[in-house]
Computed example of a mutant assay.
Amino acid sequence: MNIYADRANYYDLLFQYICTDYHDEVVKSLFPIIRDFNNIVEIGVGTGLIAERVLKLKPNCNFTGIDISKQMLDLAKKRLGNKIKLVESIQK
C-alpha cells in the first residue's frame, strides 16, 4: 500500500494553508530555469500545488505531473482539471 494513500487530504491541507510561502518560493527559484520551456514534467506532483503556481506564470505550457499516489493525483485533478496531464507511476 502506498504510504500517501491515507495522508493525501492531510498533506494537501497542511501545505495549502499552513506552508503557503513554501510553494511560492519553490516556483520563484525554479522560474528562471523553466521560463523558456513549454514542456514541463514534475515528478512527485502530489496534489498539484506547485503545478498550480507554475501554470499561473506559464498558462500555455504542456505540464505533466507524475506521482505514485492515486489519492494525491485525485486531489491534483480536482485542483487543476484538464490543465495538466496526470500520470500515476507504478510503485515496485
Rank of each mutant, 00 (worst) to 15 (best):
I50W: 00
K56V: 11
D12M: 04
K92M: 08
N60D: 15
A76N: 00
I90W: 08
C61I: 06
I34Y: 03
K92W: 06
I90P: 00
G46I: 00
D74I: 09
I18P: 07
N62H: 10
I50R: 02
A8C: 07
L55D: 05
Q71Y: 11
R7N: 11
A8N: 03
R7S: 06
I84C: 12
E52N: 08
F37I: 07
G81I: 10
I3T: 10
G81N: 12
T64L: 02
A5E: 13
N60P: 08
L30G: 00
R35Y: 11
K78F: 05
G44Y: 05
Y11A: 09
Y17L: 15
D36R: 13
N9I: 15
D36S: 14
G65S: 06
L73P: 03
N82F: 05
D74Y: 00
D36F: 13
T20L: 07
R35I: 07
I68T: 12
E25H: 14
Y17S: 13
A8K: 00
K92Q: 13
Q71T: 09
Y4F: 15
I33G: 05
V41K: 12
A8Y: 02
E88K: 15
A5W: 03
Q91P: 10
V26K: 11
Y22D: 15
S89V: 04
K83D: 14
C19D: 15
M1R: 12
L57Q: 10
A8R: 03
E42H: 05
F31M: 13
S89F: 05
I50T: 14
D21E: 15
N39H: 12
D74S: 06
I50F: 06
M1T: 09
T20P: 08
Q71R: 14
I84S: 03
V45Q: 03
Q71W: 03
G46H: 03
K28P: 05
K83P: 05
A76R: 00
A51T: 05
I66M: 09
Y11S: 07
R35C: 09
T47E: 04
I43H: 04
I68V: 09
L30A: 08
F37N: 10
N82K: 10
I66V: 09
Y11G: 06
D74V: 01
A8G: 07
K92F: 11
A8L: 08
T47R: 02
I34G: 06
Y11W: 13
L55A: 06
L49K: 01
L75C: 09
V45T: 12
H23F: 13
F63V: 04
N62C: 08
I90F: 13
I66G: 05
Y22H: 14
K77G: 01
H23M: 09
E25I: 10
I84G: 02
Y4A: 01
D12F: 10
L73V: 03
K78Q: 13
L49D: 05
F37M: 10
A51M: 04
E52I: 02
N62I: 04
S29Y: 13
D67M: 01
I40Y: 06
V27G: 05
I66P: 02
I34V: 06
K83R: 10
N39F: 02
Y11H: 08
C61K: 00
P59C: 12
G46Q: 02
D6I: 09
A51K: 02
T20G: 04
L14K: 15
I33D: 12
Y11M: 05
N2Y: 02
R7E: 15
I43S: 04
L30R: 06
T20Y: 15
